[in-house]
Amino acid sequence: MHIVVCIKQVPDAKNVRIDPETNTLVRQGVDSIVNPHDWYAVEAALLLRDEYGGKVTVMTMGPPQAEEALRETLALGVDEAVLLSDRAFAGADTWATSLTLARAIAKLEPVDLVICGKQAIDGDTAQVGPGLAAHLDQPYTTYGRKLELVDGSQLRVERLTDFGYEVVQMELPAVVTVVREIGDPRMPGLKHKMRAKKLEIPTWGAADLDLNAKEVGLQGSFTQVVKVFSPPPRSDREMINGEVEEQAEKLIQLLKEAKVSGL
């Protein structure tokens, strides 16, 4: 079984702040980390490989230094890595990103399963996983908390919902995004880490993927970030104190005064 895990290098959220003047992210002096949700995707892939055999390839699209993120996952026992890096990729939205990743996955054929984290902590869109499935024309499911191979050709996924979990089964090849409930990512191993340090990681650009400049990066993006800002603090709030009964009475009175319909 060949599993590809797509990861993203993101700014360490612990240190991120927004410049109040410009409303943009202050990236200076902020460390880059592997998107925390992606560690669960790596763990999910390694669990499947440990159980059913095969290999795991990790992939990311980003600047050359994103190679560090790939090496970090190799230290956990991931078999291979591919870096997608090209100046033309810069400014990609989720469409252009998932198209680029999908082309690279197609180049790695045969691939049985693609696993992503549920979302990235910087953009928080959760769109790249499903986008990949669309570009690959494969079935997908999201928020997997347990993955299991059935008859060697189907993936059974326990899918976390707000009210419990659903069990879905889909034909491979497929795409799945996973959540924390998959299990804690394992610790790095010394032998894996030593191998990770030395392993040669191929870098693929747009030309390697038969993509032209109009299909990738900012040019290939349908959406643009117009503005990034901190939501303004909410004003005119009133705290209601007292016993629960008093609070309820006061609340109803206030809602009536505000002429909320139905009261």
Partner: peptide, 19 residues
């Protein structure tokens, strides 16, 4: 050495996160 630093890093990570 690089290898010795890796031993430190891994042991420290386990100590901090798991112990």
């Amino acid at each position: 050495t690089e290898e010795q630093q890796m031993i430190q890093e891994i042991a420290a990570k386990i100590a901090t996160e798991k112990v």
